[in-house]
Nucleic acid binder design. Structure first.
Lengths: 217, 217, 217, 217
DNA sequence: CATGAATGAGCATTCATTCAT
DNA sequence: AATGAATGAATGCTCATTCAT
């Protein structure tokens, strides 16, 4: 029952380095986050218990509460973390986009590439899912990502880049397409975000009349 | 606090078609299913407990286990039930479809109309969702419905009606679009399945090049 | 881990007798109450835990909650029980009293006799008390008893039987005297409620000028 | 969140009377005692936790254990403190008393005046009490005070100043009267210790035949 | 000596499941 | 077959206490 332990050997650099205490704290916090991410992914947010999380860290049960007040709080931290990494990417895409087409292109590509860096969140092969295959559960991180994309799309639309359609339905469709194609993409070998993005973007753009009909391949 | 009870004394007429015994059994089974559907919808599958379900039926807790072995089993029954009602509709659409366009048209329309008849499954206003908005939960019935549609699309594609695209991505996109637009549709007032279906179908069909570009509105 | 068990042999009398189930329930309820009384008395209400109570019954932990929702509820039941037994006695004394003197005489006597029947509530030798002797804890039953006496006194006073004094201070004094002398009485051998009552009553009555000065013994 | 801290660097002057170190220690000790007194008064002794106490001091949790080994120990210190202040007062009263009447007069007055100076110990409005009103909790200080008075009375009695009564019952009655009237006194506005003392003293003295019957008011 | 994170026992409570009635 | 009480594992969480820093 050791969990994260104080490093046995100091590196001697005491200047700006965090003290042993701070280090252990940071390590523990990370360990909890990591464990939570894994547990949420395997069991689903609802089914996961705080004890599942700490059990996986090897820390004592009480220790969890030194870092987070509840399962919900870890979930929020996890979501915040993923959002913090995704948001600037989406913002950049918005800023350099000249029209809806270029925005969508960039955003979807960015999202798919982002996905690949986060496989353990969408991680193919969730055992929980096997127990009752009909239910698809979202982890907090996944939920946060979709909300972020939604927000990004809405921003673009508000700025007049919108195509002339029912925008609520459009964003719903967009999210749906990105969500499902992204997930399929992760199961392919090799994982090819460019191809997936091309498919999704063309489908949407031509679907709303922003692209010419596809040439027969 | 008895709910549906077995009559203590039979009136001697045991030969009539369903039989008193069988009738009560069927009633109880239905009561449990109905309660489960409501509970799953209100609390979400994971958060719902067997106790929540039987509490709502008024039956005794032990009685539950005469019909189902666990929450999972009721969920499966619920899924089976919804599938049983959806499947023939989708099959009919497949059988009378002449091309992918006509199939998709029929299937999506059928699905959206079906949704409306099952509002209590998608029931807007799940309080649980409010507590942690990032998480979207699926009820067993919802999961089953999506799986059924997926299967139907795959059948159509296997039978050669497929458009010339990556069919796995296509079905993924299709499901995503139907799923998300269907959900949005349910929250509108008035609920208009035809308009929603038109949007979804045109998006997909034009998206894969099966429809001409949309005229400027 | 057997706790209260179903009696092994029925006595064959099935007429008005409670079913086995009801009997066990009644026995369990009593066992819990009894255990709670002992635990409160030994550990004090605050220090006692629900687990202490059920541990002492030998029942399973969950079983407690089939009978009471919390420690507070058992405490209330305990208090209600003691009050239910004390109240009619006090009422009788009030009704047959002709003046304050006769009321007080009757009430104090009744209270002291009642105490003796409830030794296990005031039980001499509370181990908890030894752990930190400065603290005197009241069990819920004790509290209820004092409240009941207080109410009784106030009733008498309201009905004009009051002596001409500051009645709030009078009742306070009365309760204090009864409380402390009663407790001392229980530790004597032999326990003599009559002598104790005589002392308390004379002290109070002469104290408020309702009795002549005591003759030198 | 440091509360009282040990200065990180000494200024070299370590020889001054109490010494920096000793001073800080005394300050911390006092801070803990003060916090404990407040916490016990607000929450009751049993409900109060060591954490509650240190939280209120602003000190680190571990620091508590440099001064006291447990909640019980602070309680004892608190009791000792109050006793230390009360004892000389009572002794003085004993020493200048010529008979039981004069002693009682002085002692009760002293006690009631003392009470007023320690309102925060008896502090009216303990929220805990409201949650389950039947239970009256004593703080360690309160208990100590009563024990001290008890001891004082017994001393007087041993020295032959005793009236001709059952002295054990007498002290019990005395304590009871002082305790309850004292408490009521604190809730009156204005708080009048003289009046309260007069009531209590006359009640007891006349009660044991040491005073003539009261004149009709 | 102060600090505050780690520890793990303990508590209240809920729940799925069993089984005597 | 229906009932509902009993069971005990499991959960979220708090707390006293220790100890490396």
């Amino acid at each position: 029952m050791t969990g994260i332990v104080t490093p046995l050997f100091s590196d001697g650099s005491d200047e700006a380095a965090p003290g042993k205490r701070e280090l252990t704290k940071a390590l523990n916090r990370d360990a909890i986050l990591k464990a939570a991410r894994a547990v949420f992914s395997e069991l689903g947010y609802e089914a996961a218990s705080v004890r599942d999380i700490i059990r996986r860290t090897g820390l004592a049960s009480g220790t969890f509460y030194n870092y987070y007040r509840s399962k919900e709080e870890v979930a929020k931290a996890l979501a915040a973390d993923v959002v913090q990494r995704l948001r600037p990417i989406l913002r950049a895409e918005r800023e350099q986009a000249t029209d809806f087409e270029s925005y969508l292109n960039g955003a979807i590509r960015a999202y798919f590439r982002f996905l690949i860096g986060e496989v353990e969140i969408w991680g193919p092969g969730r055992p929980r899912a096997e127990r009752f295959p009909h239910i698809r559960v979202q982890t907090p991180a996944q939920g946060a990502v979709f909300e972020e994309i939604l927000a990004s799309i809405n921003l673009v639309i508000e700025h007049g880049l919108a195509p002339r359609v029912d925008t609520e339905y459009l964003t719903a469709a967009l999210i749906g397409v990105a969500q499902n194609i992204g997930e399929k993409m992760l199961h392919r070998d090799p994982v090819d975000p460019e191809a997936a993005a091309r498919f999704a973007v063309e489908l949407i753009l031509r679907g709303i009349g922003a692209l010419p009909k596809r040439e027969p391949a």
